[in-house]
Design a protein around this nucleic acid. Structure first.
Length: 277
DNA sequence: ATTGTCCCCTGCCCGC
DNA sequence: TGCGGGCAGGGGACAA
């Protein structure tokens, strides 16, 4: 489910609600995720105190005072629920963290997510993060960096934006939205982008993601904030899931059929054939 | 090495 | 009302 803005929202909500709590107990009701939750996960985590929260790519990383960090990915359908007291568990409430400041529940119907741990000082070498690309807000993400990464790639630029080894955090919604804002057609060959277009694209990615974070992410299906409230950036989507509709401030009219949908790399992709070149 | 295809899993929506 | 097909915010394992 969640892309960078949703993960950032969840991480911030956790930090605000649970803060530097003690983790009293961890109960794993189902360990069958993208990777099986390590057998000693609960043992490694229980009894520790939280010392830090960060988002790395689409992962939430929670560091502990025992030298370990929790690595948490929510896949497509993962949700985090925070409660003051132990609620009646619902279907797909797979992991329950009891802390000194509340209950944290990992709910994930499709179980495409991942919950693991590693030593905090080995995070960057961890297999999960070793090949991770630049964070969209990393100042090392320059037009030249992106242009260099794309200059030998024949795949569509939209597919390249989903490649977490180049830039991380962008998913299927924000890839279409960023390309619309940058006025670039999603099926363009990556190597065809000029340096100036790379500059516009980086600016568009940052703008879209910042606005989405400010709105608490996009709620289309599964995603809710940990307190149960909804994100509202979906109201600002320009093209995603808007086939046949006019784009914002549409001057093209609907003579061309409005926003088009195509499939790239097996994922739905939306664009305005008039405004994007 | 890069690039496409398929798969993991459950739920929901649509058409018949 | 029921059933089958297609689709969904992600990512990894393969094959070519």
């Amino acid at each position: 489910m969640p892309e960078l803005p949703e993960v950032e929202t969840i991480k911030n909500a956790l930090q605000k609600a649970i803060g530097y709590a003690n983790i009293v107990n961890v109960c794993i009701n189902d360990n069958r995720f993208r990777q099986i939750i390590p057998d000693d996960f609960a043992q490694k985590i229980s009894g520790s105190k939280i010392t830090n929260y960060q988002r790395i790519a689409k992962y939430i990383v929670i560091s502990l005072d025992n030298g370990y960090s929790i690595i948490w990915h929510l896949g497509m359908s993962g949700r985090v629920k925070i409660c003051d007291t132990m609620p009646e568990l619902e279907k797909h409430d797979h992991v329950v963290f009891e802390t000194s400041k509340g209950i944290v529940i990992y709910h994930d119907p499709r179980r495409f997510g991942l919950l693991s741990y590693c030593k905090t000082d080995e995070l960057t070498q961890n297999k999960i993060f070793k090949n991770s690309g630049l964070d969209p807000f990393d100042e090392k993400l320059t037009p030249k960096f992106l242009h260099d990464k794309l200059k030998n790639k024949k795949t569509a630029i939209k597919i390249a934006l989903l490649d977490q080894r180049i830039i991380n955090g962008i998913g299927n919604i924000y890839a279409s939205e960023a390309l619309f804002e940058a006025k670039i057609l999603p099926m363009r060959e990556s190597l065809s982008l000029s340096l100036a277009e790379c500059k516009n694209l980086i600016a568009a990615i940052r703008d879209i993601l910042q606005k989405a974070i400010a709105a608490g992410g996009s709620t289309l299906r599964d995603y809710k904030k940990p307190d149960g409230s909804l994100g509202y950036f979906q109201n600002q989507h320009c093209v995603y899931n808007k086939t046949g509709m006019p784009c914002p401030d549409c001057t093209c009219g609907l003579k061309n059929g409005g926003i088009q949908k195509i499939v790239l790399g097996g994922r739905s992709t939306f664009f305005c054939p008039e405004k994007q070149k």
